[in-house]
């Protein structure tokens, strides 16, 4: 089995069968991560380059572990985005990396569509590890994997995504994935954080968090980007928290066995109360664990699944 594509750029153009294939494949790789010797020879001799133009610990580490557990050689290449705008272009940087015979380039970039450019012009497989406000496909896949573990069925699942929908790649990828799989998706946040015509993505919009959370099976919190306060999107962190922080009281509005998710890193006390983040309903750390398995599956399936 393999993905019949060179690159993983986003969920929007990914058919349901491919999503399911990744999730099924990840299951066996999760088993590998639970072993005493957490390594298989699947990608021995392959080179994976993590090309990160944005600081990231979790995603980069997760990809690095995934590649290493598949026995690939991994190089981490961190570039500060500011130096890039003056110096070498993204394409030149990537061409140099490809010239060193990289098989995979895992790209994290602050600008939407950056991986699409590389995918068009390079032979290496491009894996999007987050591009601006566009997509973060492996995050959505690991979220799906976690949901499937806990809830089994996507169809009819009621799910609320809370926060800055307009600027969130995690929200977009999850909206594309979950609506495809038949879940009912709500988005909750202030109108300043809702992109224009967001309803056309097949979601229901709520400005009132309490109303939006009523009866949902899953609450997916987004990290608040603190630098967006002031004139930009909200008046103060204080007001934002009062309106949109997931408190224990708010969790009770959801279905009794509702799950709480967060892509991390969390701002304790800002968008999520510490006692909620650490509660039994929180699957935040399961998400992290599953991230490695899902990324192993993605690398494996893109390499031809041999």
């Amino acid at each position: 089995m393999s993905l019949k594509r060179k690159d993983l750029l986003g969920i929007q153009d990914m058919p349901v069968e491919e999503i399911n294939l990744v999730l099924e494949t990840a299951e066996s790789f999760k088993e590998v991560s639970g072993r005493d010797i957490k390594k298989v020879p699947t990608l021995r001799g392959k080179t994976v380059v993590n090309l990160f133009f944005e600081p990231s610990t979790r995603t980069r580490t997760s990809f690095e572990l995934a590649a290493k557990r598949l026995s690939a050689d991994v190089i981490n290449f961190a570039v500060s985005a500011s130096s890039v705008s003056k110096g070498e272009t993204l394409l030149d940087t990537a061409r140099n990396i490809e010239a060193m015979q990289a098989d995979f380039i895992v790209l994290r970039h602050p600008m939407a569509g950056a991986p699409n450019i590389l995918a068009k012009l390079l032979r290496a497989s491009i894996v999007n590890a987050g591009d601006g406000g566009h997509e973060h496909p492996t995050q959505a896949l690991l979220d799906l994997y976690t949901l499937r573990e806990k809830k089994r069925e996507f169809k009819g699942l009621r799910l609320a995504i809370v926060g800055d929908i307009a600027h969130s790649r995690v929200a977009r990828s999850n909206i594309y994935a979950l609506t495809k799989l038949g879940a009912e998706v709500r988005v909750i946040g202030p109108p300043t954080m809702m992109p224009l015509e967001v309803e056309r993505l097949g979601v229901k919009v709520f400005y009132d968090m309490d109303e939006g959370l009523r009866g949902v099976d899953v609450i997916m919190m987004l990290r608040l980007q603190l630098e967006r306060q002031g004139i930009a999107l909200f008046p103060s962190i204080r007001e934002y928290s009062r309106l949109y922080c997931l408190t224990p009281e708010r969790v009770t509005l959801a279905a009794p066995d509702a799950l709480v998710m967060h892509p991390g890193p969390i701002n304790r006390g800002v968008e999520i109360a510490p006692e909620v983040a650490d509660s039994v309903s929180s699957v935040i750390l399961d998400q992290v664990t599953n991230g490695v398995a899902v990324r192993m599956a993605v690398l494996y399936l893109l390499s031809g699944g041999k």
Binding site: G113, G132, G133, H134, H167, P195, L196, E197
Partner: peptide, 15 residues
């Protein structure tokens, strides 16, 4: 343009 396509692509819109 700020509209549905920008929303889908996650690009910043010019209203």
């Amino acid at each position: 343009h700020e509209g549905q396509v920008a929303t889908e692509m996650g690009l910043h819109g010019i209203p």
